[in-house]
Design a protein around this nucleic acid. Structure first.
Lengths: 174, 174
DNA sequence: GTCTATATGTTGATAGAC
DNA sequence: GTCTATCAACATATAGAC
């Protein structure tokens, strides 16, 4: 009652682990229940379906992405890239999952939302009708930062953000 | 005889298509045989197993990666990044597949080879004991270029290379 | 080279006892 | 809340006819 957690939360924790290790599509409910020491039907008591379990893990990113896209406002490039980095850092575990198999994004409307997010971010960074070269620079900047979030996840947040944003800014303005 | 191609090559072509569309793990032999208008057992006449088919498609990248790693030599950063970009561009179809589900890399020694490749490239770019910031800059540079290869695959090679290498170089030296 | 038919295992999901 | 037992649908793979 006071604690909505217990088995349900532990299921999500173990699912996150396995999804990060081997991808979402590649993880079966049996693997999850085995690692937890329970059986498959017990999972179905807590989640209506496999998709519901996956969705419950992805939901925080979906919500955050919507909020971010809605409140995106013009500003200098450094500030935009910093905000972008912070969003990705917050959800770096889920981003590892999704980066590792985007097949999961189909069926959810995640593809559209991510595309909308990057479209608006790029527009604010580059202006209305950017050249092909400018769009490529933006890809290096944003794509490079997202790699940092995954590759240097064990370093302190401040340190990674400072260096990643500086490099992204340089790429953008080259 | 003169033509080692025919069904075997067509199988590989269709498999590449489907692997790129929906990922490797997520594609069944039935889907491949259906799209080709043959039956599943016919596939087994040409390939010993599902894994043999997958491996035959990944092999060119594996070989190229080994050659590249072995012949890596010191040079200026621009030249190293250009060579790196060209390797990724050559294999961009396979890279899309692998980026989309790295689960495929397990079992093959692809993970080790890619890691070795990036390690040696980073060492040549940054020197023997780079700072954390420098390694983050290199991640933005290399990771950003690999995103370009996937995201701007429909633009002309020269155009993408010029802009991507320029941005990567700026990120590296920021 | 390609087929039909089948063996064998795994998946997501459900029924019903405790 | 968790179990045993089971389902239908799908996977990879093989045997053997043509």
């Amino acid at each position: 009652m006071a604690r909505p957690s217990d088995t349900k939360t532990r299921i999500q924790a173990v699912a996150r682990e396995l999804f990060m290790e081997q991808g979402v599509q590649n993880t079966s409910l049996k693997q999850i229940s085995d690692r937890l020491g329970i059986t498959k039907p017990a999972l179905y008591y807590h989640f209506e379906s496999r998709e519901a379990l996956v969705r419950s893990i992805l939901q925080p990113l979906l919500d955050d992405l919507d909020t971010f896209t809605a409140t995106l406002a013009p500003g200098d490039a450094r500030r935009l890239l910093e905000d972008c980095f912070e969003l990705m850092w917050r959800h770096r575990e889920v981003l590892v999952m999704l980066l590792h198999d985007p097949g999961t994004m189909l069926g959810l409307d995640l593809v559209e939302r991510v595309w909308e997010w990057r479209k608006r971010l790029t527009a604010l960074l580059l202006g209305p009708s950017p050249s092909a070269a400018a769009r490529i620079h933006a890809t290096v900047a944003i794509g490079g930062m997202s790699d940092c979030v995954v590759e240097h996840a064990s370093l302190p947040f401040e340190e990674v953000r400072a260096a990643a944003v500086a490099a992204a800014l340089a790429a953008l303005q080259s």
